[in-house]
Design a protein around this nucleic acid. Structure first.
Lengths: 218, 218
DNA sequence: CGTACTTTTGAATCGCATCAAATCTGGTGG
DNA sequence: CCACCAGATTTGATGCGATTCAAAAGTACG
């Protein structure tokens, strides 16, 4: 398995120690397939390489509640601490995944101090990113979400998108039409400079500091 | 310090080992105060007991980008892995916080296997909750977010709210008016049963399974 | 060249935010 | 106990912005 190439697209795979790598299995997944179901014993840890996997829960009426859509990287990390799953994992777009035996994963975390701290750093970084994404999604205007994304995910107000605008729109919780329109409006208003996948904010001379008058969450 | 009472309102404080507890400091915080700034050295780890703290970043025009609003529990967990902060921490509602020396925190994680796995489980659980919240916030209709909340945070379609509806509305990324209206509409339509803070979904006999025709994120 | 997908623009509709105001609630002090 | 106040809860009216449906143009790839 080409861990070099894999780690470039999925940085968290770079954390995996050599011994654990040898126990990884590559798996082709087809749309509609189920990787695990509620109450199944946790026996593997999964990472999406390509395609999409959804964690879903069915309510009493059979309505699907999506808990997570994963297009890359580990998912259901909390399963490491549980014996059984609390949701189903369904493939929503064909692709490939990696799977590790959960016992080997757990003992690697126990024994390898390096891996352990790398894994904790990975989790903490996920938490940070997700918190920012929640704040972004709670903004109501498309333009605000775009600016928030650039300022929080980019560097110095500049970002290089590594995904299509349609996928970005989905990240931002917007329809792709809304994203396209907001982008061109922001460019027309001189707020953004757009050059293909390189998008940057333009600093206005009238820099008045933020008001910070918004309501508290609690 | 009354760790018993603290752990009841902030479960993650229950993880802290005795030795680390002795090094905790309680701190009263006032609105407008700054706990740390960008590029400050990471010297403490913080947990909100009451009030609200925001992690913010200022863009080139001085506009405030909110990365996180914390009304309880640890915040800026990623600072444990960094030497300097990447944002400011500003008090947006007066209250009290706990602070731990970061060195003591790190060595406790190194030395105490129990604390370490509890902390990893805490982080993984945060990741799970935040992913579900992101999915929830990417739903467009108020009713969908409410149902999603009940099904993902509650048990068996029943939830006991431990916060005001106004605070819940903020969690859901809705105005409180929109939440009130959606709740009474759902109750009138026989979808929800509302009894004070106990809210439950009602299973309809016409249980047709989910369609799962929604677009992929990628 | 054809196919599948993304990007782009248009028009109509829907749902939520916002502003406003009234009522209800719990807690404080006289 | 009651008056009072700060919040939370509730209802109404209005406007805006995003979704949705539709369709055309651009683009990558076999």
């Amino acid at each position: 398995m080409d861990w070099q190439a894999l780690s470039e697209s999925q940085p968290e795979l770079g954390l995996i120690p050599p011994q654990l790598r040898t126990q990884a299995e590559r798996l082709e997944i087809k749309r509609g397939e189920t990787l695990f179901r509620v109450n199944d014993l946790v026996q593997r840890v999964f990472s999406v390489v390509s395609g999409e996997v959804r964690l879903v829960r069915l309510d009493r009426n059979g309505t699907e509640i999506v808990l997570q859509r994963s297009c890359g990287g580990f998912f259901a990390e909390a399963s490491l601490g549980n014996t059984r799953y609390h949701c189903d994992a369904v493939v929503s777009a064909a692709g490939t995944i990696l799977q590790f035996p959960v016992d080997a994963f757990r003992s690697a975390l126990d024994e390898k101090a390096d891996f352990r701290s790398a894994w904790m750093a990975h989790l903490a970084s996920e938490v940070r990113k997700l918190r920012a994404q929640c704040e972004r999604l709670s903004l109501h205007r498309a333009a605000d979400r775009i600016i928030h994304y650039i300022e929080s995910e980019g560097a110095d107000g500049i970002i290089n998108l590594n995904q299509s605008r349609k996928a970005w729109a989905s990240d931002l919780g917007l329809s792709h039409e809304a994203l396209y329109r907001a982008l061109s409006r922001l460019e027309a208003n001189g707020v953004l400079q757009i050059d293909g996948n390189r998008i940057s904010t333009i600093s206005r001379s009238s820099a008045n500091s933020a008001s910070s008058n918004s309501q508290c969450r609690c």
